[in-house]
Design a protein around this nucleic acid. Structure first.
Lengths: 178, 178
DNA sequence: GCTGTGTAGTTGACGTAGCAACTATAACGG
DNA sequence: CCGTTATAGTTGCTACGTCAACTACACAGC
């Protein structure tokens, strides 16, 4: 189909195409660990918590439904329940009943949560620069984005109902970076 | 250093260079989840267990020191202890005292473990093809390998003593794929 | 050879995530 | 309206992984 047949041969354990795959796994493991560690040490926030805070901050009104949050941060429903539990007890988030749907709950970012996010985003973005972007040139970045998007699309959504593949992020102005 | 200055500006939350980063995270999360799920459903083995079995199988004599295994599979020492505990109770691995160092222990692959690995490697390699390689052409692969290796190198080893960056894998003939 | 320091691996306590079961509400059909 | 079915979140149980403390041995240097 492309230069070489995409699936064709069963692929053996020493196929050279496994090298990029292994590099991909290794790179992710190392970078994720480092960023998580940095966030914890410098801001007492885990990577998952940071991701949740950021997602809530970017949502309209700085509030988001639990289910939607679960999709955004790639966690199960119960995982999100517990993550929000922690953020609530830290005072970073408040639970709020959903007006439109009495079953629903929303996570609302508190002022404290926003401050924490702003502070953490500084070092986190620096970490991304340092551990990821710094060794990649513009060409790498376009290539990676295209390839990784294709992979993500191919692998499909991570969990829950397949009928709800929300691709559009709210994209509100937050700019926690500055 | 490259085409654009490596770190330069502080990087804001809406920098376009974050898109590849996000795609990278998403791709990893989805593919890793899928592969793990497939291994569990089809062969009752987790991704981590598979990785350990494979690493042991590739080591000389199909046995490996615990510490070395920890580095290879990107786990803490205690993580490996427990992983091997599980594999031992499944009958896939045996613990063996180390002749050269009485403190040490080795994990030895059993016949059963090797069979399991062979079976699992079939579907696992198929999964890698399907969820990762199938959407990438040869050019993508070289690009990804180079970029990801650079990232992994930059982020440094995941844990433990920095003085022991073993890059050379034993590379014994095993070919569990066929 | 004994003592002090370093290293290999295990264990205990804990944190986090997942699945399945459950509760409460919504939404639909008659 | 009322029963049926679907959906949103939470909870119990369990699996897995980490750190810190611990045990046992190795390897100096005297």
């Amino acid at each position: 189909m492309t230069l070489q047949e995409p699936i064709a041969e069963p692929l053996t354990a020493r196929d050279p195409r496994l090298a990029p795959w292994r590099a991909f796994l290794l790179a992710h493991a190392r970078v994720a660990r480092r960023l998580d560690e940095e966030l914890r040490v410098e801001h007492d926030v885990s990577f998952a918590e940071y991701d949740a805070l950021l997602t809530i901050a970017q949502a309209p009104g700085r509030r988001i439904r639990m289910g939607l949050l679960a999709e955004e941060v790639l966690l199960s429903k119960s995982g999100v329940t517990r993550l929000i539990d922690r953020l609530v007890s830290d005072g970073h988030v408040e639970r709020s009943a959903c007006l439109a749907d009495a079953r629903g709950a929303e996570a609302v970012l508190t002022e404290r949560g926003l401050e924490r996010l702003r502070a953490a985003s500084n070092s986190h973005l620096r970490g991304i620069s340092e551990h990821f972007l710094s060794v990649l040139d513009a060409e790498d970045l376009t290539s990676i984005e295209r390839a990784m998007s294709a992979v993500a699309r191919q692998a499909g959504p991570g969990r829950s109902d397949p009928g709800n593949c929300v691709t559009d992020v709210p994209e509100q102005s937050v700019d926690v970076a500055r």
